[in-house]
Amino acid sequence: MSLELSKESKKKIEQALGRYPQKQAALLPILHIVQEELGYVPEDAEADIAAIVEIPVVKVREVLLFYSLYLRKPVGRYHLQLCRTISCTLRGHRDILKYVEEKLGIKDGETTADGRFTISTVECLASCETAPMMQLNEKYHDNLTPEKIDEILANLNGKK
């Protein structure tokens, strides 16, 4: 087994398997659990995950490539995902993106050299009433302005 998980994650996987009459149905939840612990889903974990749900490895790979939330490479500790769809674009997404890119010195899709920040642009996050918005790790940040970005980044820089 090259997939080494904490006791807690293993327990969560057991629980996930118990929710469905077929093991494969637990695949998406298991991938979420693995990613939550490791930050991404490493390629050499695919075979172990496939063994847990009793499907061929290629079926795991297929799912990983299909869904945009699964990461196959590590990203920065803070992942800024800026929504780029209609309402956010109408209310200034591009200006916010440019501001964040200049502030962090990286482009959309890149990670800072210290591994702290990654910027991504993503499709609609269903928070159009608070456009322009972004998801920072798990949390939504609403009605973004340059000042708000400054504040958010200053707070993060205070943390490790």
């Binding site: 494969q24 149905a25 991938l31 979420h32 749900v53 299909f66 945009s68 699964y70």
Partner: peptide, 20 residues
Amino acid sequence: AGAYICGEETALLESLEGKR
């Protein structure tokens, strides 16, 4: 896990079964 298509009911069911 981030796929608009899964709002379509049969795609949703495929996804719930652990497939793309």
